[in-house]
Simulated scan of single mutants.
Amino acid sequence: MMPPLPPKFAPEGGGAKKQRGRSRDFTPLPWTDFFDKKQELNIGSDKFNVYLKGSSGPVFYLLHGGGYSGLTWACMSEELTTRIECRIVAPDLRGHGDTKTDGDNDLSTDRQVQDIASIYTHLFPQDPPPTFVVGHSMGGALAVHVTNRQLIPHLIAVGVIDVVEGSAMDALHGMTNFLRGRPSHFESVEAAIEWCVKTGTVRNVRAARVSMPAQVQPSTAPPGSVLNDMVEEREGEEEEASSTPAAASTVCEWRIDLLQSEQYWTGWFKGLSQLFLGVPAPKLLILAGVDRLDKDLTVGQMQGKFQMIVLPKVGHAVHEDSPDRLADAITTFCVRNKFCEAIGDYHPVYPGC
């Protein structure tokens, strides 16, 4: 679901605390609660879906990880725009979300870098605004590639969230088993959201309610075979009563089969540390754990080539688990580098690392 690092938590309970005596709400939240506009861009024969927010200030170009969509940034965008005057651009990348690419799910680095540059050019054909490119996981790797190649005009900074070459490459060996171990189908979108929270994949229920629906779609398999698969997946497991029962007609499956992208994984991450250090702009690396810093980045960090911030008590989906703390970190970085000013009475807190 999210190369390069699987969730740290076991499927029962995970990072989400149980609330006994009352059920939580797993109904989907609409994108309109978080973004101003949803725009479809016609680029060649492809149609890229992009979520937009704000009308002035620098642009934050947000690139999601493998399996996610632009809606993974919903809560963080909401928080960030209350701290600084800015604009948000959050596309669904090729093969993800509501983007349609004629069945071409070429997720190679070169193909996606070209897509990312083309989306930006179509949105800002003239006088490109100051732009801060931020990416998570696969999107973090792509952010490095596209900025290292200097394909984003007026780049002011690049931010990478929880992806480091060394640990990413190591994690790829276990990613296939992780993806095969996930449920292949859910009884409903609500059930998918519940799974997302209870496994600790996302610890923030509100974030899961807006981002998870874009990761699944109505099943394309015959109803009988889907139900048989679901029964087999449940064998040997203790089933906890769902707070959101659904009819079999609402069975859904993953929108993208990430196992089919395995051939591209190494290309996303190999050589990433040196490419990151070579980006000709201020750099921010945000991690969920210091153990993920490899040798090249350790040396680079000691030499002051980038700023590193560690956010404890979050999982791999840092921006969903703690959108407020991530927004604080980005705001502080931007104010410190004089990219923008904080709004109103908001006062950035400068971290110690």
Rank of each mutant, 00 (worst) to 15 (best):
N49K: 05
L155Q: 04
V310N: 07
C252K: 05
L287K: 01
G267A: 15
A143R: 01
L29D: 09
G65I: 02
P222G: 06
I256D: 03
G315C: 08
H145F: 04
T27M: 10
R149S: 14
P7T: 12
N204G: 04
S137V: 01
M308G: 02
I116R: 02
G13A: 11
R87S: 10
V299H: 07
F26T: 07
S45K: 15
C334S: 15
K37A: 13
A317R: 01
D115P: 02
T147S: 12
V251P: 00
Y350A: 09
T72A: 15
A288D: 04
D127R: 13
V144R: 01
I330W: 01
P183A: 10
K100T: 12
F124R: 07
C75I: 03
A288N: 09
K47M: 06
P6W: 01
P4S: 14
P4T: 11
N42L: 11
P153N: 12
E240T: 15
A221G: 05
S77Y: 01
R206P: 01
I156A: 11
L258Q: 06
V163N: 00
M212S: 10
F60G: 00
T199S: 15
I156K: 14
S242N: 10
H96R: 08
P7A: 08
R325V: 08
K53A: 15
C340P: 02
G66K: 01
D36K: 10
F26N: 09
C334I: 07
G21V: 07
Q307Y: 02
A241T: 12
L179A: 14
G344K: 13
G14A: 13
P213E: 10
K305S: 07
V205L: 15
G159Q: 05
P3K: 07
P282Y: 08
K8T: 10
S23N: 12
F48L: 13
L93V: 03
E40T: 13
M2P: 01
S167G: 05
T27C: 10
M175S: 09
A248F: 12
G278M: 09
C353I: 11
V279P: 00
L227H: 06
L62N: 07
P218N: 12
H136T: 05
V318E: 05
C252F: 03
Q301T: 05
F276V: 02
E253R: 10
G44I: 05
L123D: 02
K338S: 14
H347E: 14
S56P: 05
I343N: 07
E341G: 08
H316Y: 02
I43G: 02
N148R: 11
T266Q: 11
F178W: 04
G344N: 15
G139W: 00
A241F: 08
H136G: 03
F178P: 01
R22W: 11
R24M: 13
H154A: 14
C75E: 15
V335P: 06
E78H: 14
S69I: 01
A329E: 04
F339V: 08
V216R: 01
E320D: 14
E165N: 04
L275N: 13
